[in-house]
């Protein structure tokens, strides 16, 4: 999966328009990035990458790039 596709997945997850996010986007600046979005990310990682994401890992994420890096 390309980074472009991963960003598209994250945009869809947070119900954001296409092109709203880039690798540099800081999570704290996204209004839609909240505790429910974190749960959506846990589901997304489980469904698409077979990975179980834990709370402490999520709290360490700072940018969209950080999320992309674990989407493997």
């Amino acid at each position: 999966m390309t980074n472009f596709e991963k960003i598209a997945l994250l945009e869809e997850m947070m119900e954001l328009g296409e092109g709203s996010l880039s690798e540099e986007t800081v999570l704290a600046d996204i209004e839609e990035w909240d505790s429910m979005a974190a749960l959506s990310l846990i589901f997304l990682m489980s469904e698409n990458f077979g990975k179980e994401l834990k709370g402490p890992q999520i709290r360490k994420l700072k940018t969209i790039k950080d999320i992309i890096d674990i989407m493997v």
Binding site: A38, L39, I42, S46, L53, K54, G55
Partner: peptide, 9 residues
Amino acid sequence: GMEIFGFSL
């Protein structure tokens, strides 16, 4: 919440 969600899923 995140732990419980992960466990349940």
